[in-house]
Design a protein around this nucleic acid. Structure first.
Lengths: 232, 232
DNA sequence: CGACGCATTGACAGGGCTCAATTTAAGTGG
DNA sequence: CCACTTAAATTGAGCCCTGTCAATGCGTCG
């Protein structure tokens, strides 16, 4: 199973399969079906029946929640090793969010029944899953509080820093956020409008804190953003 | 174990122990330590080391997340059968929120090691826990979106309806929300200020939709609130 | 090179937060 | 039972942040 070995990296092990005997890893993975996604392709659609859950192998997905009047909120970005649509563990539920590949991505899909059986036979896996969900919950609780208590500028700063930590890549200019990120998307993630994001980034660029291009953002002075995000 | 039988009600069974053989229920519960809480008493404090997790037996708790500059957000209200501080499943973490009894309450506390062991030996329990967490996550994702997309009035309406469903009690006047709920608390739950809540409730009272007293709110016309919360 | 999508910038208005001043209601102790 | 205290709730006035709308600029790709 050479294809599987390729995904058998540290990040991955630290998540769903950590603590599970290595001998059975391949067996477990063989239960999933590999799916390749093009940039922008929708993997799950909010409201559809939840029949499968997915493990991200490579690339990056975004989870978006849609509101009646056209607005949308980016709930989270997912990277390799993370699981989504765990809701499929419950019977007769609908996906609460839409999941979409940002750039190209690969995922492993597990049927609802399959994953339930796997979790029951490998309790450690269930515990790992619990940990991942706790992570998600914690993250969202934090962002909920920020949305409640902070002004837009602070939220944008915090969001950029978060994205930097999860998906930053060092360049000579600074830390580049390593996937397509338009003003609109950052606005959806920060819970504001593209206009405000644009204005803010422009201001920060004048201060020399970031460098912003079309769908690309490089943070040149992270410390300034940290300070901004923490000042009352 | 007569004390335990008292808590062995439907709600409870539908959560943590559903699907687990009945013979072992008492054994499992015997691993927990019963704790009685006075009104307002703090059970867990944000930032403390997470050593135990808790199952609510009776009464009602609120989970609050504190922000540096004094603001706070009520993340969730917990009723009988619900679990909190599941974070204790992870090693070396701190509680991300504060949990406080609203009126009198009883909980069952499980040591971190104990609950881990229980979940490993009873995989069905781990699955149940997963389901509860998925519920929490879903709830918060919805509220995050609402906070993002809706105006204050709609959010207050939705919050009241939610509280009504979870903790409503029929009276001759309408549906009473059955625990102490000040303007400030509703504001913290809805992510607004007590002033705005007060103004809004006053207006609704004039319209005959609610009846508001000191720390008590009765919904006399739920339908009006539903309509308000759903209109674009 | 033209067209389309992304980004920028300005003008404007309004929702709701802030602050301050009362009013109302619930306890408390004599 | 009544004065007194204290906390909750109400209401008004003002203003600021930020969303909205419109016009324009710019980069990229067919």
């Amino acid at each position: 199973m050479t294809a599987l070995e390729a995904y058998d990296d540290a990040l991955f092990l630290n998540n769903l399969l950590s603590g599970v005997p290595e001998q059975v890893h391949a067996d477990i993975m063989a239960n999933g079906k590999r799916i390749v996604l093009r940039p922008g392709q929708t993997l799950i659609r909010q409201g559809d029946d939840a029949k499968r859950c997915y493990l991200v192998l490579t690339g990056r997905l975004k989870l978006v929640k849609l509101h009646e009047q056209g607005k949308e909120a980016v709930i989270r970005y997912l990277g390799p090793g993370q699981v989504t649509a765990a809701i499929a563990l419950l019977k007769q539920k609908e996906y609460p969010v839409t999941a979409q590949a940002i750039d190209a991505a690969e995922v492993l899909g597990f049927e609802s029944g399959t994953i339930n059986r796997l979790l029951l036979t490998h309790p450690q896996m269930a515990l790992n899953m619990l940990r991942m969900l706790l992570d998600r919950l914690d993250d969202l609780q934090n962002r909920y509080l920020e949305l409640r208590a902070e002004q837009v500028e602070q939220r944008i700063a915090r969001s950029l820093l978060r994205l930097m930590q999860h998906s930053g890549r060092r360049t000579e200019q600074g830390v580049l956020i390593d996937f397509s990120l338009s003003r609109q998307e950052l606005a959806d993630y920060t819970a504001t409008t593209l206009y405000t994001v644009s204005r803010t980034l422009s201001a920060w660029e004048k201060s020399g804190w970031v460098k912003s291009e079309r769908e690309r953002i490089t943070i040149t002075d992270p410390h300034a953003l940290v300070e901004l995000s923490e000042r009352s």
